[in-house]
């Protein structure tokens, strides 16, 4: 086994997403059983079009599941998530290279 084969995440956002989900569950926002049930349903749905590869597909399904769960429970409504995504995008596009990217608030 090489170190690469054991690298837990391919991209930093996957690690952030994983940590966010675990932190929410540990803070009691949802149980892990609720999480696995929702996640399993997404994987099943996404897997209908083509078999999932367990890498990019997998983390994409994870993200879709978390967005859906947060929208359903009102913790982060779709509209809110879209708005903050747009704010971050605008911040990256307007921050000079090399400077820390921040959003207002």
């Amino acid at each position: 086994m090489t170190e690469d084969a054991l690298a837990p995440f391919d991209e930093p956002w996957q690690a952030q997403l994983f940590a966010l989900t675990v932190a929410l569950s540990e803070a009691g926002r949802f149980s892990w059983a609720e999480w696995t049930e929702s996640f399993g349903a997404t994987l099943k749905e996404h897997g209908r079009a083509r078999p999932l590869d367990g890498q990019g597909d997998y983390w994409n399904a994870w993200l879709v599941t978390l967005e859906g769960l947060l929208a359903r429970t009102g913790m982060a409504a779709r509209e809110e998530a879209d708005r903050f995504r747009a704010l971050w995008e605008a911040a990256y596009l307007s921050t000079p290279h090399g400077q820390p990217v921040r959003i207002a608030g």
Binding site: E11, W13, Y92
Partner: peptide
């Protein structure tokens, strides 16, 4: 002129 724009999923995670 500007910072590298992260990928779509990275921005969605940052939003959440």
């Amino acid at each position: 002129p500007h910072s590298l724009l992260p990928s779509d999923p990275a921005l969605r995670v940052k939003a959440l």
